[in-house]
Simulated assay, not measured.
Amino acid sequence: MDDSTLSRLLREFGLSDKEIDIYLTVLDHGEAKASVVADDAGVSKRYVYSVSEELEERGFVSVNDHAVPTTIRAVPPQEVVDSLTEDVERMGPALEARYSKATPETNQFEVIKSRVTVLKRVTALVREATEEVSLSIPYDHLSEVESELRDAVERGVLVLLVVTGTDPADDLALDGVATVARAWREQTPTMITADRTRSLVAPPQMIARSNSGERAIAFTQRQLAPVLIGSFFGNYWPMAEEVYVADAHDLPETYADFRQAVLQATLHLRAGAEPTATVRGRALNADDGPGEISGRVVAVRQGLVEPANNSFPVEAALVVETGAGRYSVGGDGAFVEDYEAETVVLDLPE
């Protein structure tokens, strides 16, 4: 290995160019006086002393300052390599543990030219969802994703479905295909957002005809997904007619998806129950607000099921009566409520 390669590798372990020069000079001598190292490395003796102390702390050399004059001895290279290897091996699990805590988000845009590919992507998004799916799809193509929708509902995913190009009065047999389903006679874009991050939108003509020349767009970006969700709830969900609502969940249950928590609280309230909520999150109007609130759910604001009582399309909120007062609670990105929830535990008092 030539000197330039060796220097580059030592630099990767955090040594500066001057530290490398001094260390390699010490290696050449095995052991030498500070003055000799200074002359060979082209630096002052005082600098040699300073750098040698740092190299000693890192296990590259040992400084014999009990002798007169002071000498600097190179630690046997194998011991240095063993020490560096041990440090790297110890670092590995810690790096891996931190890496596994978060999945990196990609800001990916893709233009899709094929109807078949669009439907495959819709199927994959439903299959991979863990919390929430909002989907608008022609009823004639529902069968291509029906199995994945049923599986998603079974594993607790909130599935909000609009089937288009069909009469709401027909027997659509949507039991178990969604958490809440609506139908609309009009043909609308096929759109899906999964877990508030991954989205796809395709024009109606692309799904209706295989050779339409239209293009779909798929993207993975948390900042843009709310735009598509807002369009779904603002333009299509209110226009479609509610045709199916699943039964309320058995409680207690913990929800990371806030819309699911609002829906379940709504269904229990309408059944005459008085659910309680324990909400972890943060107060929006006070820097020192509570990290958790708990109390009885006294009201909801929502447009997920009829009759809707929200004041704007994407509004979903709980009103929780606690011992310290009444809080309005919103989900991720809440801005009009008192409290932003991270998780909600719903329960029924005994």
Rank of each mutant, 00 (worst) to 15 (best):
T5A: 13
L10E: 06
L10F: 04
G14L: 08
L15S: 11
K18W: 00
E19Y: 03
I20K: 03
D21T: 14
I22E: 06
D28F: 06
K33I: 05
V37L: 10
S44E: 11
Y47T: 15
Y47I: 09
V48K: 11
S52R: 05
E53T: 13
E54T: 14
L55I: 03
R58G: 07
A74F: 02
P77V: 14
V81Q: 02
V81E: 01
D82Q: 10
S83D: 09
S83P: 00
E86D: 15
E89C: 06
G92V: 10
P93S: 04
A94W: 07
E96V: 07
A97H: 07
R98H: 05
S100D: 10
P104H: 01
Q108K: 10
F109M: 13
V111F: 03
V116L: 10
V116N: 12
T117L: 08
R127L: 00
R127Q: 09
E128Y: 00
E131A: 12
E146G: 07
E148M: 11
E154M: 02
G156L: 02
L160H: 00
V163H: 08
T164W: 10
G165M: 10
G165Q: 03
G176H: 04
G176C: 04
V177R: 00
V177S: 13
T179R: 04
R185D: 10
T190M: 07
T193F: 02
R196W: 08
T197E: 15
R198G: 00
V201N: 06
A202H: 01
P203H: 08
R209K: 07
R215D: 04
I217P: 04
T220M: 04
Q223R: 14
P226T: 14
P226W: 03
L228D: 05
F233R: 14
V245M: 09
D247K: 01
D250S: 14
P252A: 01
P252R: 01
R259L: 01
Q260L: 13
V262M: 09
A265L: 14
A265T: 08
T276E: 14
A277Q: 11
T278Y: 06
V279H: 12
R282W: 07
A283N: 12
N285R: 13
N285E: 13
G289P: 05
G291I: 00
E292Y: 07
I293K: 02
S294P: 06
G303W: 11
V314N: 09
E315R: 12
A316F: 00
L318F: 03
L318K: 11
G325R: 12
R326N: 06
Y327P: 05
V329N: 03
G333H: 13
F335Y: 13
E337K: 04
E340L: 10
A341R: 06
V345A: 08
P349E: 12
